[in-house]
Amino acid sequence: MTGLGVRTENLTVRFSGVPALDGLDLRLAPDKIHGLLGRNGSGKSTFAATLAGFRKADDGRVLLDGGDLGDAREPYEDAIVTSRVCLIRESGDLVGSAQVKQVLGLAAALRPYWSEDLAGELLDKFEVPTGKRVQKLSRGKKSALGAVVGLASRAPLTIFDETYLGMDVPTRNLFYDALLADYAEVPRTIVLSTHLVSEVSALLEEVIILDEGRLVTQAPVDSLRGRGASIAGPAALVDELTADLAVLAEQRLGGTKSTTVLGDLDDTLLTKARSAGLEIGPVGLQELFVHLTGSKSAKESNR
């Protein structure tokens, strides 16, 4: 089995006329772990739901291909495609009155690549009681059950939309470990939607950053690490050096200024900054994410 590739063309979804996704054109390469990052209300969940066929595009379209699907197909109301796409939302989308084992039985019947062994192993790990009804489970155990269904489905496109919010830290770590171990064994396309950037970034290969329904950036995550820099020192000098750079944020304290910029700094600039006694520091991914999605001015300069 191989994972599905995703392509969206001018994908637009509106709620009462207001766009939640606004003309997205992007591609997700198969067999990678993609991080879908954005603030609350940025369109992450709508995007995830549209990929899974839970929602129809108002304009444009979503196309999935590869794996055993062959030619590109739209997921909406296509039973073959949707059986190969597993979206696990925070609620788990589980039937409350059903027992855990019935939930698993249903998933086993619907999912062509279901692994009974993996499901059993993960239920033990997460200590989910199989005889209980879903509505009697704690929030953490419901999330864990969602994670079990999502992983054991081994769907060629698996999307976790904030699935792990209900979990405590040790349980989340169990989830990350289980995800990586099974992904290493059975590579597939995985999308992790989250705003816990610093916690999941090491798991990712690619990131997609959304803001207000638009694409801010899509890049290999390692290329974003170290892509930002902060330059600090006397305000006039800092301004002179950063005049031609993409400025993400500025902070002033008396005569001192710290400016955060995006992009690789060339050697001439670095030498100049060092000889002028300016301090240059790296910017972490989380901080970069905050700057890229935080202020209007930063967004404008990136479009």
């Binding site: 990678k32 990586l180 992904y183 290493a184 090491a202 290969e205 995550v221 390692d222």
Partner: peptide, 17 residues
């Protein structure tokens, strides 16, 4: 690389690189 990735909880492609 897979052992390394699961041990340090990082993406296998990153470890491979």
């Amino acid at each position: 690389t897979n052992q390394y990735a699961t041990f340090y909880r990082i993406n296998p492609a990153t470890a491979a690189k």
